[in-house]
Design a protein around this nucleic acid. Sequence first.
DNA 1: AATAACACCAACCGCGCTTGA
DNA 2: ATCAAGCGCGGTTGGTGTTAT
Length: 255
Amino acid sequence: MGRQPCCEKIGLKRGPWTVDEDQKLMNFILNNGIHCWRLVPKMAGLLRCGKSCRLRWTNYLRPDLKRGPFSEMEENQIIQLHSRLGNRWSKIAAHFPGRTDNEIKNHWNTRIKKRLKLLGVEPETHERFELPEKHDPKDDQLLQHCSWEQENNNSEAASLKQEGVGLGLEDTDNLMHGFGALWDILDMEEMKLEPNPSSSSTTALYMEDTCYPNMDESVSLLQGSRPYCYQSVDPLSSWDGLHHLEENFPVGNNH
DNA sequence: AATAACACCAACCGCGCTTGA
DNA sequence: ATCAAGCGCGGTTGGTGTTAT
């Protein structure tokens, strides 16, 4: 007997989210906080399952998300973390405030894996292998764009290099060696880190004291420039006041 | 200009874990 | 101790944009 579906799927919308749906979800969460994902779509007036809402929020709408390309340091750090943690993307993402596990996973699968292979490193095991003498010239082109090539332009990477962390292409023999040295640094920094309250999607929302953006603001928010304008919310207490709504929006129980 | 191939990433699916009754 | 319900995670898919032919 398979697992029951998380919610009644008939009549529920799937696929890409519209601006209107995003608006509804953000409005609801920013004003009421997150208490029970199963109730969110019903109370927010969305024809989505709670799971879909949670995903949309954590991967796209969450106000503390840091979007944009990954820096060289971030990439190097991902490689290091992956060598120790494997495909535990949520654990890896916990080291990158504002990045989602999905984002890191996608970046790993589409870019980092490829680059590691070109550098002669097996992405899954992080072990070196012999590069074939003849390879696709396009690979050279790709490597030229490899961020590690440009590390001299990055002050953080440059300082790592001073510590003996050489990840430059000109010295691939030092690649794995450099990873180890970088690890020492990361481990030390890790010990200084405070637990990140935003690392869990179900933790309370930590927001600034102001009102929820109006339509124009939220649209610009969706376009990437985020006018941080939120209502201060106590997710638990505010949900206490919503129990009467639950009666009006009875949660379907398929079990 | 057309279209094939590739890259990227948002979203879905299903499993396992946690929690509470 | 057991079981059901909900949530989170990791793997995968599919749509869209970009580049190459």
